[in-house]
């Protein structure tokens, strides 16, 4: 961990301004990912701006019937929120599928969107990794890639996005509300928030220097049956091999988002369009353009099987 300076921000605009003016500054909230990365010097901020006291910890109704979730709402609190459990159950279920109770108590809504990949080559600073060190190469592509992404990958990077929460947010068409260093607020559709790696895998989000996430807004409830199914190597406390977030309507239409397989939380309109044709068709549509390695090619079949399982359970309930 490199030495760094620290300040506790007291209002959002000042926090954004400070972040914009200090080279190498980073916001810190729960710190559940950033601190680990700092210990390994994968992240080497020179200045930390503690945003825990900005008061962004409320969940409130929006005028059009949606839900605004403060960036600092802890994962535990968000998962337990009555409105979330009633109207956005897929989000609650996704959150509870992630991490552990202790981590969810610390981790925040904004921070969760920004968590970084679990690619093991990213984590070992002696290995090549274009995401960690631009231009150093990719250790994973010809190496151990069993857990890594098969969609949205590039020649530079096959890292997976590890979040469960973000998959549900993607499904729900959330928007990410921010304020930039110059005090301007904007709303970024979550589809545009995470970037594909392309030639620049070190650039992971649409955030500009100093821009801070203030809240995540969900559109008004869409009804339907909400499910989140996460398949992993053990029963709890592991990242997804494949996860599927879905909302089924009574008429058989549905929407789907996927975790564990994408360079970012994954969603394709063609998959939703195939909903009435069943699991195989949805999988085929979702996996269009998939690029696999010898180690992770099983994920294609696992996506189909996970969807099959969801359809089967849905039929059993019907």
């Amino acid at each position: 961990m490199r030495p760094f300076t620290y300040e506790r921000a007291t209002d959002v605009a000042a926090a954004a301004r400070a972040a914009g003016s200090v080279q190498g500054a980073r916001f810190i909230a729960g710190g559940t990912n950033l601190l680990d990365l700092m210990k390994l010097q994968i992240e080497t901020p020179t200045h930390l701006i503690d945003v825990n006291h900005l008061g962004l910890d409320r969940i409130e109704r929006t005028d059009d019937g949606g839900l605004r979730i403060g960036a600092l709402v802890r994962n535990t609190d968000l998962a337990a929120d009555k409105a979330v459990r009633r109207d956005y159950a897929v989000l609650s279920r996704a959150l509870l599928a992630g991490a552990s109770g202790q981590l969810r108590n610390k981790a925040t809504t904004g921070g969760n969107l920004l968590q970084r990949t679990r690619c093991p080559y990213f984590y070992d600073t002696r290995m090549p990794c274009n995401k960690r060190k631009a231009g150093s190469g990719c250790g994973a592509m010809q190496g151990m890639s069993r857990s890594l992404a098969i969609l949205g990958v590039s020649d530079a990077c096959i890292a997976q996005h590890p979040s469960d929460m973000a998959v549900a947010m993607r499904l729900l068409d959330a928007q990410v509300d921010t304020m930039s260093a110059d005090g301007v607020a904007r709303a970024i559709p979550i589809a545009d928030f995470h970037l594909l790696p392309g030639d620049t895998p070190h650039k992971e989000t649409a955030l500009k220097a100093g821009e801070i996430i203030t809240s995540v807004t969900l559109p008004k409830p869409i009804g339907g049956t909400h499910v989140y199914r996460k398949v992993r190597d053990r029963a709890s406390y592991a990242f997804a091999l494949v996860s599927v977030a879905a909302v089924f309507d009574k008429d058989g239409s549905a929407r789907f988002a996927f975790g564990g397989i994408g360079a970012k939380p994954w969603r394709t309109p063609t998959a939703d369009a195939a909903a009435k044709q069943g699991a195989k068709a949805v999988a085929e549509a979702a996996l269009s353009g998939a690029r696999t390695t010898h180690h992770n090619d099983f994920k294609k079949l696992l996506v189909e099987r996970t969807l099959t399982s969801l359809y089967r359970q849905r039929e059993a309930r019907a």
Partner: peptide, 16 residues
Amino acid sequence: FVNHDMAEYMVPVHAD
């Protein structure tokens, strides 16, 4: 050994 931490080297958790 690539998976050299306890996040990636899996051992059973209580739920298992």
